[in-house]
């Protein structure tokens, strides 16, 4: 009997262990290639930024793709996460003087603070935004992002308009920061997948599909719209915290509306409404943009052409509504569940 339980446990956790193992193997492979000098730190850093962009885009997907809101101020949440976490490691603690055993804990704490602070702002923006819809909501969120950026310029303690240098590069390329980034990326994917395929995620989808019908099904649409904003913001905030500790320098202009637009492009190019779309879109476009860097000023023109072509030939995004099967939790009765999953796109 005991043995059977143990077996069931193993079967239950097997996929998770599998994914964790795959992530570790991936990390070791990249580390190996880096040490063999096949990959320069530059490439590894692109990969890390790609993963961060994935995190932010996944959060945006929850707000725009799953819950059907139209937020375009995601960079504001990234800024909050970056600055609040940097405040922890530079102002609150003298990070570099901490004993080596404490550093990971303080760093984890800083990322949590970044996520939490961004979540608070997610609530502050999500709450009043409920009164406006569609284009108007977009304008409010855009304005919000810009307000955050302007406010930061006035906070002398974090460098104001000059930016904040000297943040410990604890997640930097050279310090094995890829491991941290992979860890938080995997956690984000896992949490968001579980969230989307819970009753809360379905409630979010119902807000997108038909708010009135959702209410008549007993869904408190206000709760779930705000919740989506908060969760999406926490994700962006955590990514911002990592970003600050990769580069070691943050500046208000890194979080302008241009950055917000990037995330939107990633999401809609990849395929809005699916996590696969967010991941593929953010990753591939981050890499494409880097590859095109040698074109200097021509880069954005080519990038624009690529996007237009994609919208013409693949209007629903690269993934066009298909979700990676491992991103849909298995149910016993659902042996033949459809590929579209609950997101229905």
């Amino acid at each position: 009997m005991k043995e059977r339980n143990a077996n069931a446990g193993i079967r239950r956790y097997a996929p998770m262990i599998g994914v964790a193992a795959a992530v570790v193997v991936f990390y070791l492979a990249i580390e190996y290639l880096r040490q063999a000098r096949v990959l320069t730190p530059y490439y590894v850093q692109i990969l890390m930024f790609g993963l961060l962009n994935c995190m932010v885009t996944l959060g945006l997907n929850l707000i725009n793709g799953i819950t059907g809101q139209f937020s375009i101020g995601q960079a504001g949440f990234v800024a909050v996460g970056a600055y609040s976490s940097a405040a922890v490691t530079t102002l609150l603690f003298e990070f570099n003087k901490l004993p080596a055993t404490l550093q990971p804990l303080v760093f984890l704490f800083a990322v949590c603070v970044g996520g939490f602070a961004a979540g608070v702002f997610g609530y502050l923006i999500g709450r009043p935004s409920l009164r406006v819809k569609g284009d108007y909501l977009a304008i409010v969120t855009l304005g919000f992002g810009e307000i955050i950026r302007s406010l930061i310029r006035y906070i002398e303690a974090v460098g104001g308009p000059r930016g904040l240098p000297g943040i410990p590069q604890y997640a930097g390329v050279r310090g094995g920061g890829l491991a941290w980034v992979l860890f938080f990326f995997t956690l984000t994917v896992w949490f968001l997948r579980n969230y989307i395929y819970s009753f809360r995620g379905r409630a979010c989808v119902s807000c997108r599909e038909d708010e009135l019908a959702a209410e008549t099904m007993g869904v408190n649409t206000t709760t779930y719209k705000v919740q989506a904003f908060i969760v999406g913001a926490v994700t962006a905030g955590a990514a911002g915290a990592l970003q600050a500790h990769i580069i070691g320098f943050i500046h208000p202009d890194q979080f302008s509306y241009v950055r917000s637009t990037d995330f939107l492009v990633y999401l809609y190019a990849g395929g809005v409404g699916t996590m696969s779309g967010a991941i593929i879109g953010a990753m591939s476009l981050t890499i494409v943009l880097e590859i095109l860097r040698f074109l200097a000023d021509w880069r954005l023109i080519i990038y624009g052409v690529v996007l237009v072509l994609m919208m013409l030939y693949q209007p629903n995004g690269i993934c066009s509504g298909k979700e990676f099967p491992f991103l849909i939790p298995k149910l016993k009765a659902a042996a033949k569940s459809s590929k579209a999953g609950v997101t229905g796109r």
Partner: peptide, 10 residues
């Protein structure tokens, strides 16, 4: 007013 894009089950 069904949730049109979703399956009957969802």
């Amino acid at each position: 007013r069904l949730f049109k894009e979703l399956s009957a089950l969802d």
